[in-house]
Design a protein around this nucleic acid. Structure first.
Lengths: 222, 222
DNA sequence: ACCTTTTCGAACCGATCGGTTCGATTGCTC
DNA sequence: GAGCAATCGAACCGATCGGTTCGAAAAGGT
């Protein structure tokens, strides 16, 4: 334990060049390469050599920026953690009609979760759920819970304005999301549907879901 | 291509002992061990040495019965391929009331797909969906499609007997399954719900699903 | 008891893994 | 152009992987 020698300025002058392992651009570059590898072959089958090649960066450099494969994966998943909730909020903003709002919401959300990128990320996370339970919970909750709370707010507003008759808002929100997106979710996850569904396919399922939801929770007197 | 020589009896006399690699009991024993390993750590992380130890069988013997890791995994998944559809048929047999039939159906199906064993199998299959697309499709369809067709039959019967008003039976069946089981499916798969839900939890979600479904498709004049 | 055949068990193979090391190279600042 | 630090790149490490081999042991039929 040696005393730290006195220095006039603790933080070294960032004179153009970055300190080792602190160049944000290079960090992003590594994560981009790691993303392509992890998402296509999964955590186990992804080799650090593949990531090295894909990122166009020396192997040693990766270990300057990250502590190892696990740390790199963690950092990647933290970066990729969803921010879909905000855009779902935008979709619902200003929507007054319940049915139309639900339709737009589910359509956008279904399109999101069936994208190749999202599906790959979900598959990869499911593959490590036993090894990194906390990480996968965070990843799952980041999208799932936030998006659902956005929908809950919308439903609550509709109830307050007397356009919907819902007693258990949380349950209703869960029901609608499952109703509108559950099928695509499962089909895509298990590879039974190899490509993302087109908008027409989504809209057909979603509008059927809206009909059911409105039949159950819509105000009769409207 | 040599001609097969004439032999009096094509099938050799099974005189007590089995030919190498043809003892069904040993084959099962190997598959049981392989199942425990594959399901807990996934395909990649499962080592043949682990399986050897877990199955209580020599490594060489495994390679007498199976061509390798891939073949062993394939054989396991074929063996484990669901036969849940038949028991779901039993659940619905003799059910006349639509709501009660749906309740029983969903309750049993939700209990099945949230069992630790089922969840592990699904996670494992999702992990290899890129490498063995045909296998994972077969696995997914074995349960999913058959169970849904059982429900479709029930709904059709209800429609024929004028107890339900459904135009698109296939869509309605999908909707109900997603509505009643989608939440548990996702929560369990991503590890956000670490244990299988108890029957009370299931029934609460399922009966809410039945209410919504009946509101949408139930005959008003009843 | 003897023979046949399966199974065992342990060593071994080449390949690849995550991770480390270190001198050469690059690109920046002064 | 000199000096310096980050990066490169290639070799290297021990461990583990799937898979193979082979003599010893075990089990059953005759």
């Amino acid at each position: 334990m040696s005393e730290k020698p006195y220095v006039a300025c603790e933080t070294p002058v960032q004179s153009g060049r970055f300190a080792a392992g602190e160049d944000p651009a290079k960090r992003e570059q590594i994560l981009d390469g790691a993303k392509r590898v992890f998402m296509t072959v999964g955590f186990d089958a992804a080799s650090m050599n593949d990531i090295t090649r894909e990122a166009g960066v020396s192997k040693g450099t990766i270990y300057v920026y990250f502590d190892g494969k696990d740390d790199l994966f963690r950092a990647l998943m933290e970066r990729e953690r969803g921010n879909i909730a905000r855009s779902m909020q935008d979709v619902l903003d200003g929507q007054t009609d319940a049915a139309e709002g639900l339709q737009r919401f589910a359509s956008a959300f279904a399109a999101h979760i069936t994208r190749d990128e999202t599906v790959s990320a979900m598959r990869t996370m499911i593959g490590v759920v036993n090894r990194m339970p906390k990480l996968s919970k965070r990843f799952f909750n980041a999208d799932s819970l936030n998006v659902r709370s956005v929908l809950e707010d919308f439903i609550s507003r509709q109830v307050a304005e007397d356009r919907l008759a819902v007693d258990d808002v949380s349950m209703a929100a869960r029901q609608f999301i499952d109703l509108a997106t559950g099928t695509f979710f499962k089909l895509r996850l298990f590879g039974d549907m190899s490509e993302a569904p087109d908008q027409q396919e989504i809209d057909s399922v979603v509008s059927a879901a809206v009909r059911v939801f409105m039949a159950a929770y819509g105000k009769k007197s409207q």
